[in-house]
Design a protein around this nucleic acid. Structure first.
Lengths: 227, 227
DNA sequence: CGAGAGGTTGAGCAATCTCAACGGGGGTGG
DNA sequence: CCACCCCCGTTGAGATTGCTCAACCTCTCG
């Protein structure tokens, strides 16, 4: 209750990394729901009555203009959560792949937070991380060009998937369209930019979905605008 | 302590509306600092050792690329706070006008939160509002054109300043350059767009800093992409 | 084999940026 | 008091980035 009051149209928290046992335990209790690709899970503006944790699959968080332009806010995979914060969802959520989620009433979360103050600290930490990512994305959307945007995304995806120096190959979890909607570009520009990176030997593309980072440092420099 | 731990490079909370008496009281205790226009108050990446409340004047929060492109994250005026959340500042803060701020050690905030759980709820509310605004700005930056961006900003500024149907005139608190850096545009494009709105009789401009909203509804439709 | 989805590529176009010049207002110093 | 300067905003012309529209390719699935 304390969580959901006031704050009109406040948002719902995303991206879990919910390693704190308490929070993990909490969002593991609830109804298991299935979602097929493209299926809407929550709608922007709806009262945030439940919080969710992704168990399997992947979902996308997005906002849209009335004429259908999309801005992808975030992608969530296993263990990531949304709907933890705010009185209303500030974005819609759709399944990307076949997904399983745990759905828990927000009242339950609020009660647990009242009982265990450590949970509140954990929520605040998650919110802080969320805000940091949002600000980073604002810099990307407002001030980076197409190359810098795509390079940033490839590195971020590699990082989240666990690719590194030793294993520089990874599978893109999202389509070109989703990349475009995340970066504020068109699908064609994303495709051309990736092709350009391939031609420059910055990456290899065994298949359109499989990326090998050949020169991560150069790509990182590009992502920061140092090129 | 509980607040500032873990969460590497997590951000600091902004924009107050700190109406809860507890939080208000808290951030009122501390050292008063003065800042002259353009003066840097905190630097992106620094450990978030203090939180601040603006008493008078106005400050800007921004991130920058290494080659100097700026993205303004937010503007703060009297009663707004920053540095409440996260282990490091995720943005730099500069004074826009001559400003007075209250500076409080984060350790004090953390202690107060431990003592009064209601404070944690308040922090979470503020974080939720912050995240909601950030997501809205991501849609603006990623998917709106220049007209939609400028219309959105004018309406947002009017709203925050308290202009309305009855008193549709207000003074712009920020320069064209700051608008541009907030919207991901150039100063010239902002200027041209405002001129265009004036020519279309959507607004009047008694002086370059004074805006009168002649047709707020049309402007709002424009801001949402319904035109 | 045909259809559809996702991705790539090309050509032309439009929105926005870049570079440059200009104007007004306010302060400052002669 | 006036000349000068600087800051901010405006305007113009041309360059450029990324978008639009369209075709085509590959793979999968039925």
């Amino acid at each position: 209750m304390a969580l959901s009051q006031s704050a009109l149209r406040a948002p719902s928290l995303t991206r879990g990394m919910c390693s704190t046992p308490e929070l993990d335990g909490l969002v593991r209790i609830g109804i298991t729901v299935q979602a097929t690709p493209g299926q809407t899970i929550v709608l922007e503006g709806d009262p945030c009555s439940h919080c969710f944790r992704v168990l399997t699959g992947a979902v996308r968080l997005y906002k849209a203009t009335i004429d259908g332009r999309r801005q992808l806010i975030d992608f969530l995979v296993a263990d990531d959560c949304f709907g933890l914060l705010g009185a209303h969802y500030t974005y819609s959520v759709e399944a990307i792949t076949q997904s399983t989620l745990i759905k828990t009433p927000r009242a339950g979360l609020a009660a647990a937070v009242r009982e265990r103050p450590a949970l509140a600290d954990r929520l605040i930490e998650l919110a802080a991380a969320e805000i940091g990512r949002a600000h980073e994305q604002m810099l990307l959307l407002g001030r980076k060009n197409a190359q810098e945007k795509v390079a940033s995304l490839l590195l971020e995806l590699a990082r989240r998937i666990g690719a590194d120096q030793a294993r520089p190959a990874f599978r893109l979890p999202i389509s070109r369209q989703e990349m475009a909607d995340h970066l504020g570009l068109t699908i064609e520009t994303v495709s051309r930019t990736i092709t350009h990176f391939k031609e420059e030997r910055l990456i290899a593309l065994p298949t359109p979905q499989d990326v090998v980072l050949l020169h991560p440092a150069e790509l990182a420099a590009l992502a920061e605008g140092a090129a």
